[in-house]
């Protein structure tokens, strides 16, 4: 694949990826093999500035550091650090767009933007439930736009439902995890005056801007980027879990943090076992809905 080929739209890129690797590239060990056993284009990636593992690790570490510093110095300095990091990542993306790993950077910039957006887009006087929608909407749009950077979204982001029963089984685990999470975190109820419309809104908002959004970002985009960069599925799951868990640092509960880490690992591994992103997202969504309903019921 030529350098120019990397910048071309997917339609042009696809036939190139099927090309046999040149003799000198075949000497390299395939990092990320296709199901068919055909070596992926990542074989050639090493010739173009590495896989970006260092960049990925550095950006993930910086996001985690910002979250940690937020708990010490306050959320605002941490969020401003995240904003600067996002600027740096996007600038690097523009300047180094000829590198194969450049596509990781917008995704990591989106992750860095989670905290600034959640603080800037939320008007505190609105009901707490609306906070999730206001913080989630811009990120959801960003995540959907980031899908355009993935060459084969259906395959790479596990959007195709291949094992429906496995999806259902994973989703069914969500309420159980939600019950445990509720016991660990004891969150405040989201509705001041519960009614049917309020419950419907809670379920809708938490499903879309909670479960679906987070899984699309962490188990979808970040995991795919990490898989390409790190070359190992296990390492990728570990990295995606590390980043998502870091963003839960602000919950202030270590047991909840550990639970979310465990959930992250399990969902990531589920994806490796051909569970779809929809199943994983449903599991996360049901977990959040269970937590919210339990909080509401116990408040009554």
């Amino acid at each position: 694949m030529t350098r120019k080929g990397r910048h071309e739209p997917v339609r042009q890129a696809r036939p190139v990826s099927r090309k046999r690797p040149p003799p000198q590239a075949a000497a390299l060990r395939p990092i990320y093999a296709e199901p068919s056993g055909e070596p992926s284009e990542l074989v050639a990636v090493r010739d173009r500035g590495g896989t970006g593992a260092g960049v990925l690790a550095a950006s993930g570490g910086a996001i985690a550091a910002a979250e940690l510093s937020a708990s010490v110095y306050g959320a605002i300095p941490g969020a401003i650090f995240d904003t600067a990091l996002a600027a740096l990542l996007l600038l690097t993306f523009v300047l180094r767009s000829d590198r194969a790993w450049a596509r990781l950077l917008p995704v990591m910039a989106l992750v860095a933007l989670i905290r600034p957006i959640s603080l800037a887009a939320v008007e505190p006087r609105l009901p707490v439930l609306a906070w999730y929608a206001f913080a989630g909407l811009p990120l959801l749009i960003g995540a959907v736009l980031a899908i355009r950077l993935v060459e084969e979204p259906r395959r790479q982001l596990h959007l195709a439902v291949e094992r429906p029963l496995a999806d259902l089984a994973v989703a069914a685990g969500g309420p159980i995890a939600g019950a445990v999470a509720y016991l660990l975190l004891r969150p405040e109820p989201l509705l001041g005056q519960p009614n049917l419309a309020g419950y419907a809104a809670t379920i809708a908002i938490l499903c879309v801007f909670g479960g679906l959004l987070e899984e699309l970002i962490f188990r979808g985009l970040v995991l795919d980027a990490a898989t390409h960069a790190l070359g190992s599925a296990w390492a990728a799951v570990g990295f995606a879990t590390f980043v998502s868990t870091a963003l839960y640092w602000g919950s202030g509960s270590l047991p909840y943090l550990l639970l979310m880490a465990a959930v992250g690992v399990l969902l990531g591994l589920g994806l490796q076992r051909r569970v779809s992103l929809w199943g994983v997202g449903a599991s996360h969504a049901l977990m959040l809905v269970t937590m919210a309903l339990l909080a509401q019921v116990s408040a009554r």
Binding site: S71, L119, P124, A135, L139, L206, F209, L247, G252
Partner: peptide
């Protein structure tokens, strides 16, 4: 509960105007 609205975010939103 989520990565967007953590406890730290909630407390920052309620503490500041």
């Amino acid at each position: 509960m989520t990565t967007t609205v953590t406890g730290l975010v909630s407390s920052s939103l309620t503490q500041h105007s």
